[in-house]
């Protein structure tokens, strides 16, 4: 089958596989969808489990497309999230800017690891991001949140492999370029 041969596999890209550069509109679309996912109505357990999709998407693009998404874009997305979430101006912005810096710092080595090991490192970054928000809120006088506060970064890290496969899908080179 010609079509099947041209379809990239569902498995994540191997380190030696060279991905095509991401299209700017795709980056923008995924960030917008992540923001939508963040604002989907959720209650109870779902709300407690819900990871920060914008942070995840930013992290992915900071690692994969650092020329498009860096500290500045992350900061701007953070400001938008502050409006959408009705939190203090600058709270998400600060957290995302630091997240982008963290991604910049370790993006050269993280892609060499298998996905589940990447996920562990992502968990640390997301936890640092959440801790920063917590710090800001506690300076603002908020009480210590319940232990469920630690859950979304872990869920986010667990989603990392799936997210990676989904977001690198359009960048995969087709297997038989000669058939094009």
């Amino acid at each position: 089958m010609r079509i099947a041969a041209r379809m990239p596999s569902f498995a994540p890209a191997r380190p030696e596989e060279i991905l095509k550069p991401a299209k700017p509109w795709f980056v923008v679309l995924t960030l917008a969808l992540a923001m939508l996912a963040n604002t989907l109505p959720a209650t109870g357990v779902a709300l407690a489990l819900k990871p920060d999709f914008v942070a995840l998407a930013l992290l992915y693009w900071c690692i994969q497309a650092p020329r498009y998404v860096g500290v500045g874009v992350s900061w701007t997305m953070g400001l938008l999230m502050d409006v959408v979430d009705a939190t203090l101006f600058g709270q998400h912005a600060l957290a995302y800017a630091v997240l982008a810096y963290g991604a910049e710092y370790f993006r050269r080595r993280v892609l060499r690891f298998p996905l589940w090991q990447q996920a562990v490192q992502v968990a640390f970054l997301l936890a640092a991001c959440a801790a920063l928000v917590l710090l800001v809120r506690m300076i603002g006088g908020a009480p210590l949140p319940r232990w469920t506060y630690a859950v979304p970064p872990i869920v986010g890290a667990l989603l990392w492999p799936l997210l990676t496969v989904m977001l690198q899908w359009p960048q995969r080179p087709s297997r038989k370029t000669t058939t094009l």
């Binding site: 860096g70 500290v71 500045g72 900061w75 953070g78 409006v83 203090l88 101006f89 600058g90 709270q91 912005a93 600060l94 800017a97 630091v98 982008a100 810096y101 910049e104 710092y105 800001v136 603002g140």
Partner: peptide
């Protein structure tokens, strides 16, 4: 990146302070 994160970080902190103390950013919001 370090210079950028320092700049944006400081800017965020100023915004946080202004928003928490003076509530003058409602129009921007």
């Amino acid at each position: 990146p370090l210079a950028r994160v320092a700049f944006f970080g400081l800017f965020s902190i100023v915004l946080l302070f202004v928003d928490a103390r003076y509530r003058t950013l409602e129009d921007v919001r």
